[in-house]
Amino acid sequence: MALRLSVSGVFLDSIPRSIGSSLWAISLPVPSLLSDLWDSVLRAAPKKKTSHMKRRHRQLAGKALKDVHGLSKCPACGQIKRSHVLCPHCVKAHPVDIFSLAVTDTQILSASGASSIKVHSTTDTDFRLVQSIDNAHKVGCHHLVTGANGSRAVSAGFAGDLKAWSCEDGYWFADNATSANLAGADAWAVSLSLDGRYLAGVTQNGHIKVWDLGANGALIRDHETKGSFGTCIDLSADGRFIASGHENGAVYIFSAETGRMPFSLSGLVKPVRTLAFSPGGRILAAAGDSKVIVLYDTASGEQIANLSGHSAWILSLSWSHTGEYLLSGSFDGKVKVWSIDTKTCVATHSETEKAVWSVKWLPKIGRTEGFATAGANRSVAFYREATGG
């Protein structure tokens, strides 16, 4: 019996031998047996096994799904809540995004796009609400700072107004005389000295101003930059330096004593959203839209490290009291704890996918050092361990 072969439906014995032989040569290299053999070869190829260390690193980086633990009953309403989060059923921290947190020895203050400032106690495990400062800012507040001794606070509202607050026996009230002298300051971001006496602010046209609150808010310094929008500012704990971050990516350091600018720092070409001096004033950390935290040596102005890990804008930075850890909050919803000694991330928290606008270390209780976070999820979360346990 003769075998008749075809290519594309044409039988080879029906065309001239010369053409048929060439077509026959084309069809030979692709037998069906080869495809089956190749598929088995692919299946037999060794696969790379994920090591325990790599799985652990992924967990620390927030890439692994985690069960929800640490649930408890709210002592006020009896509803189930997270152990380290304010009860959403009875507290109602804020009805809109929380933009700023400020900490004293015994309290934590929070400000949002709403008109009220909330005050919670940090001396008990329930972080109970002890005061609500109603109608603090009619159209909301975006920056809130306190002195270390907890006697004074200053808030900056979306209407462009600055307001000063005083505290006696844990109760906050308006300092109307100082607020009146701060009228027209037009500062966007503000920072207070440790003793609460000096207030530094950066304006929309890039001016860095310093007021003496001990003299009812008298203006004592006015530094000029290149005119870019001032987005953030910080005073060093020792009172020697003032640092400001700007929309054009510039970072400036001024001497508080002489008023001169010893350094104009490079390294961030995108808007700077936050910066913070280490407790000893030796390091300045700055971050923003570049998604990288840059560490500068304040003695030389040199860039000493880059900390990478966030996938979106970095909105807030806070140093631990010892300077051992740096805390960062981002628009990606993650909070990271960085070891300054190893320049690595030692813990990542990703309980929300919404922006984390503010992070703050809490007063140290014994050997435990915790922190608080707040943002677009409209709640304040508390963590008790330095690595976030």
Rank of each mutant, 00 (worst) to 15 (best):
A2Q: 14
G9E: 12
S14D: 12
R17Y: 04
I19L: 13
W24S: 15
I26M: 11
L28Q: 14
W38S: 13
S40W: 04
R55T: 05
R56Q: 13
R58D: 11
K63D: 12
K66Q: 14
D67E: 11
G70P: 00
G70A: 07
S72W: 02
G78F: 04
R82S: 13
H84G: 15
H89Y: 12
A93S: 15
P95H: 10
I98W: 05
S100F: 01
L101N: 00
A102W: 01
G113R: 14
A114P: 00
S116R: 10
K118P: 03
H120F: 15
T122A: 09
T125N: 09
D126K: 05
H137R: 08
V145H: 04
A153I: 06
V154A: 07
L162H: 08
E168D: 12
Y171K: 15
A177R: 11
N181S: 13
G184N: 05
D186I: 06
W188F: 11
A189F: 01
S193T: 08
G196I: 06
Y198R: 08
G201W: 00
I208G: 07
I208T: 11
W211P: 02
G214I: 02
N216S: 10
E224F: 01
I233H: 00
D234A: 15
I242S: 00
A243H: 03
S244N: 05
V251N: 07
I253G: 10
I253W: 10
A256Y: 06
A256M: 09
E257D: 14
F263L: 09
V272D: 00
R273L: 10
P279M: 02
G280L: 00
I283E: 01
Y296W: 15
Y296Q: 04
G309R: 05
E324I: 03
S330Q: 08
V335F: 02
V337R: 07
W338M: 05
D341A: 14
T344F: 02
V346C: 05
H349T: 01
E351N: 13
K354R: 10
W357T: 02
W357D: 08
S358W: 02
V359M: 07
K360L: 07
G366P: 03
N377A: 10
S379C: 12
T387V: 13
